[in-house]
């Protein structure tokens, strides 16, 4: 009897790790397939064989090389990295607020970043005619922190989670309204860019921006991964975390800074993108059947990348040659997930 019990436990452990492995293998396969599809499909279709030649041997038709190296590849990498960062940012915020529907978009953090980026762009374009991507990231970070500050102030007064979300959505609306106002009255030819950006898109990234995005998101994600252990303790609640030796104040600060850096970076480069931050972490946790940060964080990053690349592919190709903005596509897939979470939560309460 006892032996049987131990065997079944060992079996459970095995089943669990097998599940983790399966999820990661599937994610990696999806990642590869979508990457190839993304390079392959477009106004100029490029065969897989050509793609391999262009990327690995750096030879082939010059136009095609240009398309791959200057347009499609940067865009794919951007979508992957920013998507990963966005989804991770959502996971960190959900941990922080202990709320599965918290995310940079619904809490108004993306919109705050959008506002400051728009202001900076207009101001800088009027003054000097150009802006560096680092300036934009910094501006976005400032905006994200202002929104976050608001949300924190509200959350100290409102313990009710849905009230917090409503407050976040309102902050988002206010920021968007001001952004629209500013964009409408700024009569610059470059405003077309600004307008496109403010709707959200992964297009038009040069290699410098890609590098910058990779570095910032990369560092922030690694730091977030290193916080795994504390996140695991914090999932039991603030007081339990403290009783296990977590410096809660420091940890909360780190959490909010990292999630702000991540969502600010994404917003600076690609504009506000909705629902990725909620939908992807939720789907990953369900797929892994675990909320262990040690597996959920890498899965969120990978899953966010895959999800955004997939949505970008649809945005590019669904109504080609005109492009959808990325939020349109992420909302279609992401919003139902949020509704599903809420229904599920309600059921669990009963």
């Amino acid at each position: 009897m006892m032996e049987k019990k131990i065997q079944s436990d060992a079996y459970d452990v095995l089943k669990r790790s097998l599940r983790y492995e399966t999820v990661f293998v599937l994610l990696i396969i999806a990642f590869c397939v979508i990457t190839v599809l993304n390079i392959n499909i477009g106004s100029v279709p490029i065969s897989v064989k050509e793609i391999a030649r262009i990327i690995f041997l750096q030879e082939g038709d010059p136009t095609q090389m240009k398309i791959v190296w200057n347009i499609r590849l940067p865009r794919i990498i951007t979508a992957a990295v920013l998507g990963g960062g966005l989804s991770l940012s959502g996971f960190l915020l959900q941990t922080f607020f202990n709320n599965p529907i918290a995310g940079p978009f619904v809490l108004g953090i993306s919109s705050g970043a959008k506002l400051t980026v728009a202001l900076t762009m207009i101001y800088a374009l009027q003054m000097t005619g150009k802006v560096s991507s680092l300036t934009l990231v910094l501006a976005a970070f400032v905006g994200a922190m202002i929104s976050t500050g608001f949300i924190l102030a509200v959350s100290s007064k409102l313990r009710n989670m849905s009230a917090l979300l409503v407050a976040g959505i309102m902050i988002g609306y206010i920021c968007s309204a001001i952004t629209d106002f500013v964009v409408t009255f700024a009569e610059e030819s470059d405003i077309v860019n600004l307008h496109n950006w403010s709707l959200g898109s992964f297009s038009g990234m040069d290699w410098n921006s890609v590098k910058m995005a990779c570095i910032i998101v990369g560092i922030a994600s690694v730091l977030a991964f290193l916080l795994s252990k504390s996140i695991g303790a914090y999932q039991l609640g603030e007081n339990y975390a403290r009783s296990m030796g977590v410096n809660v104040k420091l940890f909360r600060t780190a959490l909010i800074l990292l999630s702000s850096v991540l969502s600010a970076t994404v917003t600076a480069f690609a504009g506000p993108i909705s629902f990725v931050g909620i939908a992807v972490p939720h789907l990953m946790k369900r797929a892994l059947n675990s909320s262990k940060p040690l597996v959920v964080i890498p899965a969120c990053f990978l899953g966010g990348g895959v999800f955004c690349m997939f949505c970008d592919l649809i945005a590019r190709t669904a109504f080609a040659p005109s492009e959808l903005n990325i939020s349109t596509v992420t909302s279609i897939f992401g919003a139902p997930v949020v509704i599903a979470i809420m229904i599920r939560r309600q059921k669990e309460k009963q």
């Binding site: 999932q235 007081n239 059947n289 909320s291």
Partner: peptide
């Protein structure tokens, strides 16, 4: 305090 861990 009632803890409500997810999927644990």
């Amino acid at each position: 305090e009632r803890m409500k861990p997810e999927l644990m």
